[in-house]
Design a protein around this nucleic acid. Structure first.
Lengths: 199, 199, 199, 199
DNA sequence: CATGAATGAGGCTTCATTCAT
DNA sequence: GATGAATGAAGCCTCATTCAT
């Protein structure tokens, strides 16, 4: 996975539509088969464009894959940010943030598999990607710790812990089976806020 | 990923050694490059055997991959079980279990990446694998809840949450950078036991 | 010899030409080396196309081989049918039919070797193929027997006998050395019509 | 198919037995799968000897194959000669010869497939092999023609015709289905002696 | 802009043959 | 004599990418 000169995508209205068709088909195909089992020919077939057309818009299989990951990234962060807007207490924010994440997953389960794949395909990407999210979380946690709302512990570490919770729970209950009831969500939030131990 | 006639591996002492050489090289190569980027030729080169020799012991790239996953699987479960032995309170057990898992990761970081890969290569395997571990944890949690030690919540859900914590924290601090200090581990255990909120 | 997904061959004019180039080279190569010694790379080299191009038109070595056999089959039957058209007596028909077959061989000696090969590679194909030809012959013989022109004997048996004559004589005098003079052909027809014994 | 230094087979009593075990297994395997699909490993497996042992007795796959063909050759000629012994008229001889051939086939159907295979694998061998048989027949036919018993025609040509009859009829009724009744045999002999035409 | 036929490097796998024991 | 593990050349096939139209 190394870089390469980026093709100058067509710039017309029509070109924009074509590009979108390809992107959407790619999302579907990558999501269903993963990076390695995905075939450019399958993507173009599902896009309804010719094979060669793909290379007018993307310079390689990797490029479109990265583009997709970037997109998810961006959407996810916006989604999380929106979920947080207008909340008062930190605990509400965290609960809301977690909910926002899981709802996001529900809408983009296929793309999420792509990011997971990227994790393994390209560990540096993982670092960059998750680190970035973690930093956002860590800042929030740090503030709450300073205010005395949260127990004082390594904020980045806890941020990763929260992300892991979202990831596994999301994978199990959302991505694979779509059974994350509100009751379960409440349980989960309670665990995050108060831990395992009674009292 | 479909099956194929299983090769009758040589059965002598020498054969056993060769098999081991191949397995170890495969562990390394799969761990470093992932399933798709791994090359049989690289595995045999690192084993110091000829290309054809590989096929005396394994019928395909898939087969050895699965064998490796099974092995890790087995080792991991034993590792976790050992971590639990001889403890009194549930909270100690969980803390110990988490530690056991993270120490295990420290020893087998590469293989762990293999299992993660399998997650994507073969989702049903993922289900089976994680579900099984989760059930073990869930039983432990259930008992502690019954005894009144732990807050009463969906045990399987919490089990997945714990696994996610281990996974992400492991990925970030152990697999990628090996920086999981004891202090951080204490922080993490504290979070799990008592949650985010102060008091 | 088992099946595989059939490739959607290109459908343009140019594609048709390429397909033909491949078919013709395959005919030559299979004819000269036989199924097992034939190399796809040799076929594409002689076609003047790249290796991969072969697989745009045929999904495997087996597929093109079968296609070739089918084609010969078809051509042969048409050829034999034409030889029979417009004749009066049965004896003339047989003589003409035999001649048609041998002339056919003269034009397609290489492909004929392919069918012979198929005979051994795939006995069921042999059954189907020869049985079908034999039935055609047998019907003609039966009629002539009913009219009292031919001696009454198991028509299918005699059909196979006639095919054997054509095959061996063709193999010896046509395929291998191209020395089937008209005089010899007359001798052969005479033998078939009147047998060995004088009077 | 080219020659190579012949291995010095072991010469003891035990060695002779081993050699025989291999030959017999080879007969079976070649007969069932043909030259190209036959595996040395399968032959040794069925022989009950180790893989390497094969090469103590035969220098290559080709060598044993040729040896097998030679053997069949020899047996066949002896078989045919025996069938002819003690007969008076040419017509009787031919009838007997044909019968002898077909009975031979019945006993050695598998090996016969091998010879047929050789035909295609190695055309020069075919020439040599069939030519030799044809010459024997041709001599007999010539004599009968000289005596005025048989119609005078190119004897070699007729010899090939007779061989073709035996081959196809044998293939259809003996090798594949084992249904050559005496009645059919009589029909066939009658055809050969008197031809198709009534009177 | 779009098309789709063509390319060819490179991977996996087989199996006749060799060789150390 | 026998064994069976090891070898590696060679073949089939895939698929990302290019290019002529």
């Amino acid at each position: 996975m190394e870089s390469r000169p980026i093709r100058a995508s067509p710039k017309t209205e029509r070109g924009e539509r074509t590009r979108l068709k390809i992107i959407r088909a790619a999302e579907k195909v990558f999501g269903e088969r993963g990076f390695y089992e995905a075939r450019i020919s399958e993507i173009t077939r599902q896009s309804g464009v010719a094979l060669g057309t793909f290379y007018l818009y993307f310079s390689s299989k990797e490029e479109i894959f990265r583009a997709l990951v970037e997109t998810l990234n961006h959407d996810l962060r916006r989604s999380l940010a929106e979920g947080v807007r207008g909340l008062k207490t930190r605990s509400e924010i965290e609960a809301k943030g977690l909910r926002a994440f899981l709802h996001f997953l529900q809408r983009h389960r296929k793309l999420y598999r792509i990011v997971k794949q990227a994790e393994i395909v390209d560990p540096p990407l993982f670092q960059w990607y998750y680190q970035r999210i973690a930093e956002g979380y860590a800042r929030g946690l740090q503030e709450a710790m300073n205010k005395g709302e949260f127990r004082r512990r390594d904020p980045e570490l806890i941020a990763f812990a929260l992300m892991g919770i979202g990831d596994f729970v999301g994978m199990r209950y959302v991505t694979l089976e779509d059974q994350l009831s509100e009751a379960r969500l409440d349980d989960l939030v309670d665990f995050i806020l108060h831990g395992l131990v009674k009292r």
